[in-house]
Design a protein around this nucleic acid. Sequence first.
RNA 1: GCUCCUAUCGUCUAGAGGCCUAGGACGGAGCCCUCUCAAGGCUUAAACCCGGGUUCGAAUCCCGGUAGGAGCGCCA
Length: 492
Amino acid sequence: MPERPVKISDCPRLPTMTVTTRFAPSPTGYLHIGGARTALFSYLYAKRHSGRYLLRIEDTDRERSTDEAVQAIFDGLRWLGLESDVNPPPFQTQRFDRYKEVIAQMLEAGTAYHCYASKAELDEMRTAQMARKEKPRYDGRWRPEPGKILPTPPAGITPVVRFRNPVEGEVIVDDIIKGAIVFANAELDDLIIARGDGTPTYNFCVVVDDWDMGVTHVVRGDDHVNNTPRQINILKALGATPPVYGHVPMILGADGVKLSKRHGAVSVIDYRALGFMPEALLNYLVRLGWSYGDQELFTRDEMIQLFDLERVQKAPARFDMEKAVWVNHQFLKTADPAIVAPEFDWHLRHVGVDPANGPAVVPVIEAQRERCKTLAEMADKSKFFYAELEGYNEKDAAKHFTAEAAVLLDELRARLEALPEWSTLTLHETVNGFAAEKGLNLAKVAQPIRVAIAGMAITPPIDVTLFLLGRDRSLSRLQAAVAYSAAKVGGG
RNA sequence: GCUCCUAUCGUCUAGAGGCCUAGGACGGAGCCCUCUCAAGGCUUAAACCCGGGUUCGAAUCCCGGUAGGAGCGCCA
């Protein structure tokens, strides 16, 4: 993969500044998969440049913010391993004094002013503008201008505070992903930075927070591009240097429509239940909108090593569950089983089975990972190692528990019982030898054994399966199957 | 309506003016291997939104369409 000669990311404007990124969700619901990718990109970019990655909770909307949502965000990020470099993270509601201080300064400096227009008045204004096919925006009726005479403040109304946006010139957002985006100041109206009750609003808090936290690179969803010029103007009014912005496009559902609950799993934590390993989900996510030549699989270190905001796609991408599952499978097949073990353990409990009541999970993972793309599937197909059979798969039993098989199973059971040693080697020799002796294809023997000991015709290689299940369980299940077959055949 | 953004196989993408007869991956189809299911190997179908320009040469640069999307709150 050829490197481009010069990268903006390698030449920061302020070489001595530590790269600082942040992920700033508002706790109004679960951690969305799109949010997780934004967090990933922020994290990767910071780590790539030996910088800091921070979390911030944007809870200024007290109506919709909940403690449960805060917890969901923490849980999701912890599961993914995208935890903040600074803990606990700042909450905006804890910083109201600071915001008020800055607002007071701006009022003093004349970069902000009081506006007494009521909501009803503003609604009326917007409807009229829409009717005239204009962009709905504040008309500046309370904006002080040299020589302008302001109306008398109405009694009994607490004013909001508006930012006094420049009316001339333009703002250039030099987006690291999208390139330069130009906005005319004339298009921007005077946004509210403090509500009637004195609480600050989002666009303002973001600016102050990013400034105070020393954020150098703002990575966020591209639904924020239109906010960016205003935020830059506020920063300039404050005398601060704006950060570098990178707006990442959204993640769409398979049908090309904005991802929603209707598409199934949207919350990060849903992917755990689906059987994804966090590293694999991250791997899929990093490739959704970013690439490094033809490489599909990345370790976390490689991601950190290679990630680059400049190579992030400008167009939205669709979430493809099939490919995500493929990536997960690749991870499962090659990862150190010890890393998979805790998650697999979680899944076994999730399907109602006690991991202590059976073989060690590591060899089970090694035996199953070739045929299981997700841990949910692996847990489901491994239940029989840890709990008694709940019955046989109907089709499999009908197909493999023939009269002939019952005889075979009975004879084989006796041979296995006589085995002095229960190992994959002795098991392999016994079963294969038995089939050869009878002049049968191994499948003829192995399939009935599978159904007998696992309840279904899909298991790892038969010798491995018998070994992992153990002598006692194998023998008793074989016996039960013989009885079952005999009854079935005998009973017609 | 206004502002802003985007456009390569079904999907994720490579592509930085000649290396493109457009590459890889998922998914699809076929074959091989095989104790089940898988895994693996091989083969294969499948795309530059349209129209103009610039250039000896355009998927790539420019302009215009078209189509999608985002934003236009005392939400974040």
